[in-house]
Amino acid sequence: MSASLENIKTFDPFADALDSEAQTVNYVHIRIQQRNGRKTLTTVQGLPAEYDLKRILKVLKKDFGCNGHIAKDEEMGEVIQLQGDQRVKVSEFLVSALQIQKKTIKIHGF
């Protein structure tokens, strides 16, 4: 019985719950879309408004060696579009350069 009590101590049931509440506010979604052939398109949606998307895009384009642009959407706001599958690289960049928490980044697609 003492072992189970120990377990209860180490597990905080509310840690998880609080996280999920904070997360629902603003996720950064990184998606992939198939184009013709084996070409793909990466979209980054939901970046916080305090960042200058134009400058981010400029750096991303140079770092990944790909083209891209900012698409404006009525519902989703401004979305960064990049050519090719840049999902992992983008998420790494967002974590390291922009101090976005990894929890708030959602990578979609296969």
């Binding site: 998606r31 879309q33 198939q34 184009r35 013709n36 519902e75 989703m76 579009q81």
Partner: peptide, 8 residues
């Protein structure tokens, strides 16, 4: 579904 870019 999220943002869908125009393809094609």
């Amino acid at each position: 579904t999220g943002f869908q870019a125009h393809v094609g």
